[in-house]
């Protein structure tokens, strides 16, 4: 249940840590897993001291987005439980998303964290293949 003002964890290496939902696209309802949303980057991820000191190239590569940027994102985990067609129900402890560009390509190159396998049904196979694990 992700809607206006919801703060979501960003689990890719695009440089965003916490983003805020400002719009749910193509739906009048709160966003679920696989839905595309518009977000504002609220908090940047700091990639440790070695990446900060080790040349501006890596920092520039890491921080693809800045605080205040408006981006599109895909919801990959929801704390709201949802039922699968086989009767099992899934619920995660947090809400998480992955930033994408307008064309639908993920901005980051790596994900850290489990994602829901509903992404396959919603044609987000690229995100699913980046993820270390899916359930």
């Amino acid at each position: 249940m992700i809607q206006l003002k919801t703060l979501i964890n960003c689990i890719d290496n695009s440089g965003a840590a916490v983003v805020e939902c400002v719009n749910v696209l193509r739906s009048k309802r709160p966003a679920k897993v696989g839905d595309r949303i518009v977000v504002v980057v609220q908090k940047q991820r700091n990639f440790g001291p070695e990446s900060g000191s080790g040349g501006s190239v890596s920092v520039g590569a890491a921080h693809k987005v800045r605080r205040g940027d408006i981006r599109h994102a895909v919801v990959v985990r929801t704390a709201k439980k949802y039922q699968r067609p086989d009767g099992s129900v899934v619920k995660f402890d947090d809400n998480a998303c992955v930033l994408i560009n307008k064309a639908g390509e993920p901005i980051g190159s790596r994900l850290n964290g489990i994602v829901a396998s509903e992404l396959r049904d919603k044609k987000w196979s690229k995100i699913l293949s980046l993820a270390p694990m899916h359930l």
Partner: peptide, 24 residues
């Protein structure tokens, strides 16, 4: 009949309901 299991995968808490008699 169903069971609610709670585990952690990649340090994220996950809860799953499973139907005990599901053919799956």
């Amino acid at each position: 009949t169903g069971i609610l299991l709670r585990g952690q995968l990649t340090r994220v808490g996950v809860e799953m309901w499973y139907k005990v008699y599901s053919p799956n």
